[in-house]
Amino acid sequence: MEPLVDQYSRGALHGELGLGTFEAQLAAATGGGAAPPPAGSTFFDSRLGLAVRRWCPPLLGLEQHCTPVRYLARRRELGAYSAARALLRGSGIGTYLVGPDPDASGELTTPDELASAAEARAHEAVCLRQLAAQIADTSGTVGSFLTNTAEALYAAAREAIAFVSGDGFLEESAPELPEVHRAVGRWLRDRQRRLEPVLVRHLLWSALTTGRPVQLHCADPSPLTGFLHATSGLGATVILLPRAPHHRRAAQLAAAFPHVYADIGPRPAETLAEAPFGKLLFSTGARALPELYVVGARLFTGAMKRLLDDWVTDGCCGRGDAERIAARVAGGTARRVYALDAA
């Protein structure tokens, strides 16, 4: 299989990681909060922890399933950069699409830093909320904000691979201009205010006209049906990035709307049953730990291999078809949808 295209991640942490920091990131990756692990246990005692111990130690010159203490000691011995480089270059990912991380405060790698460490390609996806804040910093009036917004969106579209928005405030039409004027005025007078829903809508509908795909991060994509209907004639491309366990519903929406695509999620057997194979794209969703890129890639390739081997054995498809389907989901569709070859 060709190198994977990871359509959504947020970069890796700089610097050395002690046991506590590493475990905190494992907990965050599984949806855990700040609570400590159970007494006498560790966050390595989880499916994710076992996966890290299975696939990552050999990339650092250790045996599979070595103890967490030995693994982290080897990490420190190599140094943070060398360890991250070995992990990323062993992940099987050839192209990274890196989204924003508002809470990172510069502690995560930039797309260029990630590309250098991984010896791969990396592209930035621009957050519309962050873009609005940057525009406001240079706009003294409502008129200049709106003019600068249009210019900034098209400038970003020339450089970024996609725009990123959340799933809030997705009404079925763009806001009226007087609404936008009033909201901009209030926000410019008081930048401590949260970005108002009408401005989020204005930015999103404006981004949909730039020709760049828009990634929608959504907990449950079911409420987006009306919005997807309304955007179907704009020539825009929308990629749904739901949270588990809603990937199946996202695949159904991708099947229903020609301009909509979806993340394949952690269980390809479910999503491939709901949508044409060319509507689903792979991602790791990794953040902070380079190990999460390795685990995400291995879980995906393993699940796809098992599923497609079953299909071949059952006579559902031939081996050539299976290889073509795997290549499409692993990167072929992402290269087409995000125009990666042109980028």
Score class of each variant (00 low, 15 high):
187 W>I: 01
185 G>W: 01
293 Y>I: 08
53 R>N: 02
335 R>W: 01
266 P>V: 11
96 Y>F: 15
216 L>H: 00
183 A>M: 04
37 P>L: 08
252 Q>G: 11
249 R>T: 12
293 Y>Q: 10
62 L>T: 10
88 L>G: 13
308 L>K: 06
342 A>K: 13
320 G>N: 12
167 D>W: 00
86 A>V: 01
69 V>E: 15
302 G>E: 03
204 L>R: 12
158 R>F: 00
179 E>I: 02
238 V>I: 15
177 L>H: 03
107 E>T: 14
66 C>T: 15
217 H>W: 09
245 P>S: 05
158 R>S: 14
84 A>Y: 04
243 R>W: 05
187 W>R: 08
30 T>R: 11
268 P>G: 03
63 E>T: 13
272 L>H: 00
294 V>W: 08
257 F>N: 04
220 D>I: 14
274 E>A: 14
231 T>H: 05
315 G>F: 05
6 D>Y: 05
40 G>N: 03
329 V>E: 08
287 R>T: 14
188 L>R: 02
233 G>E: 07
121 R>E: 14
14 H>I: 06
189 R>Q: 13
321 D>T: 15
295 V>E: 10
313 T>G: 04
251 A>D: 11
311 W>Y: 09
25 Q>N: 09
178 P>V: 09
320 G>W: 05
31 G>K: 05
248 R>G: 13
122 A>V: 13
174 A>F: 06
336 R>Q: 04
116 S>H: 02
270 E>Q: 12
319 R>W: 03
222 S>P: 07
165 S>P: 09
263 D>T: 01
248 R>E: 04
93 I>A: 05
7 Q>V: 15
89 R>M: 02
177 L>V: 07
120 A>P: 07
128 L>D: 09
209 T>S: 14
39 A>K: 11
49 G>F: 08
71 Y>G: 01
296 G>E: 02
268 P>Y: 00
246 H>V: 12
165 S>H: 07
277 F>T: 11
124 E>D: 06
85 R>P: 10
271 T>N: 11
322 A>C: 14
224 L>P: 14
293 Y>L: 10
94 G>E: 03
118 A>V: 12
285 G>C: 02
123 H>M: 10
42 T>E: 09
45 D>W: 04
330 A>L: 02
23 E>W: 02
142 V>C: 06
61 G>H: 12
86 A>F: 01
178 P>A: 07
270 E>D: 15
35 A>Y: 07
277 F>I: 09
225 T>N: 09
162 A>I: 03
139 S>T: 03
155 A>E: 10
58 P>N: 03
241 L>K: 00
128 L>W: 07
56 C>W: 00
219 A>R: 13
124 E>P: 09
241 L>S: 06
283 S>Y: 01
43 F>I: 03
272 L>F: 03
52 V>D: 04
